[in-house]
């Protein structure tokens, strides 16, 4: 049991971060805080990918001029049949670099929108904005 909990330490952290992020998005009315929550939520996914790239006993996936540097296996880890050198899987790191770029651009667009919303409504609190929009709806109908 203890082994299970300790052995999955990364996953507990990931789940905690993921739920924290989602909770922040749902619970707060402040638009910037919503984006912070979104950032935390996305970061947890980055960590999920990084965690699953680790191969038990694997070295960093850097070719260090050992004689015979491995063949591909089904699970993406490089295993040398002679030396038994195991490399961690580098692919998820590359994927996550892409996902980080996506996350940053989403955040940038989101913050730009918040700036524009602040200009248009004079507030970044969800309640104030809802009230302003409700007044527009009432006035126009």
């Amino acid at each position: 049991m203890v082994d299970f909990i300790v052995g999955h330490f990364n996953y507990w952290v990931i789940i905690t971060l993921m739920m924290t992020g989602l909770y922040v998005i749902i619970s707060t009315g402040n638009l910037v805080k919503k984006l912070v929550g979104l950032g935390v939520f996305q970061t947890s996914v980055f960590q999920l990918y990084i965690t699953l790239s680790k191969v038990a006993g694997g070295r960093p996936p850097i070719f260090d001029k050992l004689p015979g540097y491995g063949t591909e296996t089904k699970y993406g880890a490089a295993v040398d049949p002679l030396l038994g050198v195991i490399y961690s899987n580098p692919l998820p790191h590359v994927l996550i670099l892409t996902a980080i770029v996506v996350g940053v651009s989403t955040l940038a667009v989101g913050l730009a929108l918040v700036v524009r919303i602040r200009e248009a409504y004079g507030s970044i609190e969800g309640d104030d904005i809802d009230e302003a929009e409700y007044k527009i709806e009432i006035a126009s109908s």
Binding site: V102, L113, R116, A120
Partner: peptide
């Protein structure tokens, strides 16, 4: 209409949650 801004912001939050759920699934 300034409501486009809040519409876009809500879409951004929900759309990103959706895409992130998808990427968790792919992972």
């Amino acid at each position: 209409n300034r409501q486009a801004l809040t519409a876009s912001f809500n879409y951004l939050i929900l759309g990103t949650i959706g895409a992130t759920f998808f990427v968790i699934g792919v992972g």
